[in-house]
Nucleic acid binder design. Structure first.
Lengths: 339, 339
DNA sequence: CTGAAAGCGCTAACAT
DNA sequence: ATGTTAGCGCTTTCAG
């Protein structure tokens, strides 16, 4: 069973080296030979054995995406899968395989080193949730081709790409100001929540740029949860001078925010505008439908694919950069009051 | 660079066959030799080359999950990723790699055949969305180890496992009857929507079992979309004798259903109960929080892992079966009126 | 433009 | 219990 390169060579009356060359598109083979060998390959239904090629070529054109896949992550973190899809799309286009592996933060360093040592993969895309200083050390010491999806929150020489959340925050504030909302509140997660904080940072920087002074009590921190969004929003709308719009650091907060406003009797978007980040499909199901600053995480995954292949080809490449095209999706929770 | 089995053999003063045997846990090696070889392997930081092993063993312990990964699928189909996670969990436990590959229905047959022919993978998990008669033919003719996730909707000898939606429908009706809701309506997707229809089938069969007669106008078909859910529900609650509870074939319908009921002035769950299928995290964000018949799709993926490995080991095994553990999650949209 | 031959690193009969 | 050796199927110098 199994027709091999030898069979093809014999049948075509050439050496296996020649067959190999036509398979791999060498220029040094005559057109006639190429045609003949191709015919024979088709006739014999020959398919080069990937396992043998991998051994000979010292590569298996495989990237593994390591992340943490607890139960329900499909529901709680759709963005991760969206990135994964972008990644898959690019890699398969380049004839690379994407393998998916779930790991805990503790397991990550040893698993990655081992997997690389045994030559199961050419490189790794590492989800930021798996980061640790130990991992950083392991990766660096062993010169493992890698790319982190998300910026490390510690000094690191790992390669990474990430969404520019600060920029997204700027976009949010800029858009709201352009709509005519002159004062903006922000409700965010805990101060340790980097994404939330970066978005806030962007908002504040844009506000400053437009010379709007920001009262301290227009900024609230809580949990990334609906009830927290409800409470923080309640505090804000009870203020003497309440803001004209509220920016929510994420969707969970936003759902609570909307509920609080509705229950208070105020109307969205006339009395108060609401803007959040990341477009969940459910944003469209809410009443009112939420306007959002959308971030193309599929594209982030796609870029990750491009970059990891660069790194695999040239281990000296070092990448640390923000990649984003945030765009505003205006729906019902904001209006342009200026026209 | 790269320490090989030869280096280990030389250093340990044995043959490479012996080293190979200790790597693969052969019983016929003395304890002393095993210990010595292990020491040397550690000392030399030796790691067996997977690519060489794959070639020699004629296997690369790899399963590929083929499905369709258009943009936004992370948001629109979290269930698929949940299955994928279960699958990954089982496969990695058995030291198999899971590769992810996006395909269109048209591409599937050739890609799968080619991938199998070139020996990139040992088997395939195929998402039902990729099914076609041509695929069926390709798979069968070439005896490709496979397992479809979802029942084919045509006569097929492929292996598959699926959620038992009829059973889920039975559970739904049984639960509602037990709560004291004596008459049940059902709003579903189009008649072509097999999932919806199977759930309805289960509902009806359970109703019959309890000798409750089901008026035709208690059953409505529409689109799997909120506005459709809204309309169908409106029709139902305007009926002279409206049902005591409504079963929605899926969450999209359910959101519209809830809105229609609320706008009509009726209260959930007192005036009318609402039950749907599949627990989306957003079911908890709605007011009222939705009671659901939950289906463990993670587990379905896990079972798929078990079964594809059986099939890979023994190509003669043929599997066509329903796998489910639906369970009720009671929240606010239903009450037990019986106690 | 083509071929001979030496790997790639490991496994698995078959001997001993 | 251990070693010899023939593969596994392809790539890649190096000659010619």
């Amino acid at each position: 069973m199994g027709v091999t390169i030898k069979d093809v060579a014999r049948e075509a009356g050439v050496s296996i080296a020649t067959v190999s060359k036509v398979i791999n598109g060498s220029y040094s083979i005559s057109k006639e030979t190429i045609a003949r060998v191709n015919d024979v390959m088709k006739k014999l239904d020959y398919h080069p054995n990937t396992r043998a090629r991998n051994l000979a070529q010292k590569s298996n054109r495989t990237i593994v995406f390591v992340t943490s896949l607890e139960k329900n992550v499909g529901f709680t973190n759709p963005h991760m899968f969206e990135m994964m899809c972008g990644l898959e799309n690019y890699l398969s286009k380049k004839d690379y395989s994407l393998v998916l592996r779930s790991l805990t933060t503790d397991e990550a360093p040893d698993y990655i080193k081992e997997t690389f040592d045994v030559k199961k993969a050419d490189g790794f895309i590492i989800h930021a949730s798996l980061l640790s200083e130990k991992l950083d050390e392991t990766i660096s010491k062993n010169e493992i081709p890698h790319l982190v999806l998300g910026m490390p929150n510690f000094e690191s020489h790992m390669s990474w790409i990430d969404v520019n959340n600060k920029h997204a925050g700027e976009i949010a504030a800029k858009y709201l100001l352009a709509c005519g909302y002159c004062s903006l509140a922000f409700i965010g997660g805990r101060p340790e929540d980097k994404i939330s904080m970066n978005r806030l940072e962007g908002v504040l920087s844009m506000l400053k740029e437009h010379d709007v002074v920001q009262p301290q009590n227009y900024i609230k921190y809580g949990e990334s949860a609906t009830n927290s969004g409800f409470e923080l929003t309640s505090e804000i709308i009870e203020l003497d001078h309440r803001p004209e719009a509220i920016i929510c650091a994420n969707n969970y907060l936003a759902y609570g925010c909307v509920r609080a406003i509705k229950e208070s009797g105020l109307t969205i978007p006339k009395d108060i505008g609401v803007l959040t980040f990341d477009d969940f499909p459910f944003s469209k199901l809410l009443a009112p439908q939420l306007s959002v600053v959308n971030i193309d995480v599929y594209d982030l995954g796609y870029e990750a694919g491009k970059n990891i292949l660069k790194i695999v080809r040239n281990p000296n490449v070092h990448i640390q950069s923000y990649i984003t095209n945030p765009n505003i999706i205006q729906r019902e929770s904001t209006v342009n009051n200026m026209r």
